[in-house]
Design a protein around this nucleic acid. Structure first.
Lengths: 191, 191
DNA sequence: TTCCTTCCTTACTTATGAGTAAGTATAACC
DNA sequence: GGTTATACTTACTCATAAGTAAGGAAGGAA
């Protein structure tokens, strides 16, 4: 593969490593060697590792925005949104990204500067907002049924998926599908 | 504080660091300095970092066994077991252990040897067995109500709590309490 | 043609990590 | 009293990490 500018290639490679090993689990060498460039080339584009991490979080956030903007703006059926979240999660795991950004950053939290913490927080808030709207819409349209405020349920579902990815890594990917079934069941979905 | 043998002190300190920063997030120095010993003293008790990690996982597993053995052997009311899980989680977070062992290991998974993977897997299986029995008992005694197999629901609840700890670290501890409320709600508990 | 600017490489520095080998104090054992 | 095992310390080795300074090629602009 190896398409795009050097900068893009660095981001792609770092993204993969970050979601496989966490921030302290990979080095500049792990990025530069497969790309056939030198460490200093990475430092040219991202002066230090936090700058690189910033770019990764921005990339991750951008992916979320792209895949949710239409629903956030115009609404629509809720069920495909939920299934989209499941599919995305499964897909990431199958593409060698077993853990998610939030899970990875939780481990490295002590190293993070305020800018990164804010960016991460903002990503979580947007994720929660999206799932909250999905649940509210779904409940209003009788696609889903659940007790309590939609936002609380949204946080719970996102937490479940995040935890499931980590358990799946240690145990087996079957856990993921099983968790999706349970979430559907808890939302009163029976097909 | 600093009670117990040097070996115990090392384990306690390492346990704290592991659940704060993950395996790659702390060094021997982070253990030895606060204890007023030398790095080599750690290597004496635990020849390498994997041996230390093994001891931490064993310690963690032992804690689980101690707190669940009575219920696993004799049964009893399910609700206090569930609340015990919530209290334990909250307590760990308040004691400076924001992430859990499984979550930490998921990030460092590439570094782990087979022995560690097996030990971790065994811990997860025991956790799931316990929560499964709690749920089965609770459903049989009409304390809880939920759809689907108890084991699937147990995995889902454990995943939720695990993910919640990581979200709580980035966002706020309020998330934890909120998640517990949602889990109770989803189990048909109304008080 | 000369001068920037962009995007790298070469060749380091400095710090820190895990791990080891050899020595030492202390108490128990024969 | 001498030996041995335990539980360390001292003093290192070796590898790898992030980061930097200086140089060079290649293209566009004056």
């Amino acid at each position: 593969m190896l398409v795009g500018s050097t900068r893009d290639q660095i981001i792609n490679q770092a993204f993969q490593l970050m979601l496989q090993r966490g921030l302290n689990g990979f080095s500049y060498r792990d990025i530069s060697e497969p790309l056939g460039i030198k460490n200093a080339a990475i430092h040219y584009h991202f002066p230090n590792k936090m700058d690189l991490l910033s770019a990764l979080i921005a990339e991750n956030h951008q992916l979320l925005r792209e895949s949710t903007s239409e629903f956030m703006a115009y609404g629509g059926p809720a069920r495909p949104q939920l299934e989209g979240l499941f599919d995305y999660t499964m897909n990431q795991c199958q593409c060698g990204r077993p853990i998610c950004m939030v899970g990875a950053l939780a481990v490295d939290y002590n190293d993070l500067n305020d800018k990164i913490k804010l960016a991460n927080d903002s990503f979580i808030k947007d994720s929660v907002s999206w799932v909250t709207k999905v649940l509210e819409t779904g409940r209003a349209q009788d696609e889903f049924s659940f007790e309590g405020p939609a936002k609380r349920k949204a946080i719970s579902i996102l937490a479940t998926i995040q935890g499931a990815r980590q358990m799946a890594r240690v145990d087996s990917m079957d856990i993921l599908e099983s968790i999706f079934v349970q979430i559907r069941t808890d939302l009163g979905i029976n097909d």
